[in-house]
Simulated scan of single mutants.
Amino acid sequence: MSPAEAPVRIVSSNKEASHSYVAGQRVELWCQLSRPVSPVCWYKDGEEVEVGETLVLEQEGLQYRLVLPCARMQDTGEFICSASDASVSYSILVAEPPVRILQPPQRSLELLVQAPGCVELRCELSVPDASVHWFKDGLEVDETDNLLLLVEGAWRCLFIPKSSAEDAGEYICETKDEAISFDVKVSGQWRC
């Protein structure tokens, strides 16, 4: 049997590496074959992959790579590199990025407001389209005519146009990963 007819084997791969990623990270799967063979096919969840902006196939000598330049949640699954009778599979997990509160940097703030002044509590998030929950004294708040929950890009805002004594208390803005508290104190009547 000549070397060209020898069975194709997977000589090495990064199958055993951890393939848990955060959305946005680069993913690189590779395997090295014992000899050149054509075709080498890559599959995800049983379907042949399509090359595009989100998935690149590369070959360097006997090493074959599948690259996801910017992993997405939908990239989670099983990838297989198949070459002749040899194949290797990779189990990929892509998780949502953590949602951090970038601004304000303090995790606990105190705010003194003179009634009926406005109250504006603002948080900037690391993930612009992430959701938050607002709480007052431990209870989730709902929007009303005098309590607005606003989204401005990466900013989340709780806005009270005309405060009163009932608006005093602890407000919390909570993401899936972090929280920040605002201790709002309302004093006296504010006169123009």
Rank of each mutant, 00 (worst) to 15 (best):
P3D: 14
V8A: 10
V8F: 08
I10L: 08
I10P: 11
A17K: 13
Q25I: 04
R26N: 07
V27Y: 05
V27G: 04
Q32T: 15
V40D: 03
V40M: 03
D45R: 02
G46M: 05
G46S: 04
E48L: 06
V49A: 03
Q59L: 03
Q63H: 02
Q63W: 01
Y64H: 15
V67G: 02
V67H: 02
P69E: 07
D75M: 02
T76S: 15
E78C: 05
F79I: 04
S82Q: 15
S82F: 07
S82Y: 07
S82I: 09
S82D: 02
S87K: 13
S91V: 14
I92H: 09
L93I: 09
A95Q: 14
P105K: 13
R107C: 02
L112Q: 13
V113I: 15
V113W: 04
A115E: 10
L121D: 00
L125D: 05
S126W: 05
V127P: 00
P128I: 03
D129P: 02
H133M: 10
F135Y: 14
K136M: 06
D142S: 14
T144Q: 06
N146W: 09
L148Q: 13
L158K: 07
K162V: 08
S164D: 10
D167Y: 10
E170Q: 12
Y171V: 01
C173P: 01
I180T: 02
I180R: 08
V184E: 00
K185T: 13
